[in-house]
């Protein structure tokens, strides 16, 4: 038999070869390629990659239809932050002494497991002009709140962002719940002896103890909002009033065959996500040891 030292080298190499090959081929190599394409006017098919310098980047910032789509991402950002607050609130409730805890947890998590296309179709039906939501409002005596949820350009993005909130808050909640369960019980007992009330316990013990996970969740929420794609793509076919930066990017590439510009847009998005991470690290610090 080989010595353990030789075995170790052999094993590390053979066990990591395929996973690292996949990581490089499908994550790092495409990211590098993307940067290269962004300086060309490649059409996605030919073997020429005509160098165009920074002109793709110039078009992104001068063409309001492209960069302006981030305005539509804004509603996803706001709903994402609300989603985290609701998720944390429910996690705290479910972490207290409560009946039917598992039942409520299971119900609230359910949307996360449903197929995204099915969810969007169901909401499209509910949002119809004569749909369930407007009928329900009428029955509740709130008829004045009835809206054309999809047809009205000024609210459609909020209707779409709500679907995202509905789909994902249960997932955030379960992550928060897991973090809450790892807060040492002795700390709560000590606080109780010192006479701290529920509110003080929350502010001084619970929140500081799960700060890292709040940051990670917020980070994923913000980058998720910048990258909103699925819901407008399925619900409205990413029509102009609902187009997000990412649906525009994919449209530029796969509908208009302008891969160079699309790559530049993807790079801009990557840089923005990077900036968000950087700001969050600088502002709030820590959180790095979590993952």
């Amino acid at each position: 038999m080989l010595s353990y030292n030789t075995q170790k080298k052999l094993l590390i190499f053979s066990f990591l070869a395929i996973p690292l090959a996949l990581l490089i081929t499908f994550s790092f190599y495409p990211a590098v390629k993307l940067i290269y394409y962004s300086f060309t006017s490649w059409d996605g098919l030919s073997n020429n990659y005509p160098w165009v310098g920074l002109s793709n980047y110039k078009s992104i910032f001068t063409n309001p239809g492209l960069f302006g789509a981030f305005g539509h991402n804004f509603s996803y950002l706001v709903c994402g932050i609300i989603q985290n607050i609701i998720a944390l609130y429910f996690a705290i409730i479910l972490n207290s002494k409560i009946k039917a805890k598992n039942f409520f947890r299971s119900v609230l998590f359910t949307p996360y497991i449903l197929n995204a296309v099915a969810i969007v179709f169901i909401f499209k039906f509910i949002y119809l002009d004569t749909g369930a939501l407007n009928l329900l409002l009428q029955h509740m005596g709130l008829g004045s709140l009835q809206q054309d949820w999809i047809g009205n350009d000024s609210i459609v993005n909020w209707s779409l962002a709500f679907v995202s909130m509905w789909e994902y808050f249960g997932f955030n909640m379960v992550i928060y719940l897991a973090a809450l369960q790892s807060v040492p019980q002795e700390m709560y007992e000590a606080a109780k002896i010192d006479g701290a009330n529920k509110w003080k316990t929350l502010i001084y013990i619970t929140i500081p103890n799960i700060k890292g996970i709040i940051q990670i969740n917020l980070l994923l929420t913000i980058s998720g909002a910048l990258e909103a794609f699925n819901i407008p793509f399925i619900m409205t076919n990413a029509s102009p009033p609902t187009a997000t930066f990412l649906t525009n990017t994919m449209n530029v590439a796969f509908t208009f065959g302008n891969y160079g510009l699309a790559s530049a847009m993807a790079v801009v998005l990557l840089v923005l996500v990077g900036v968000v991470i950087f700001i969050q690290q600088k502002l709030l610090g820590g959180g790095r040891d979590v993952v």
């Binding site: 994550s27 990211a31 390629k33 996605g44 910048l226 794609f229 990412l246 998005l269 996500v273 991470i277």
Partner: peptide
């Protein structure tokens, strides 16, 4: 290697499809 996996988490997979398509 660990840092590599972490960094990749923040690359939106949909954006890199343009290049993955070629692969």
């Amino acid at each position: 290697i660990m840092a590599g996996y972490l960094v990749v988490m923040f690359i939106p997979t949909i954006t890199t499809q343009v290049a993955i398509f070629g692969v």
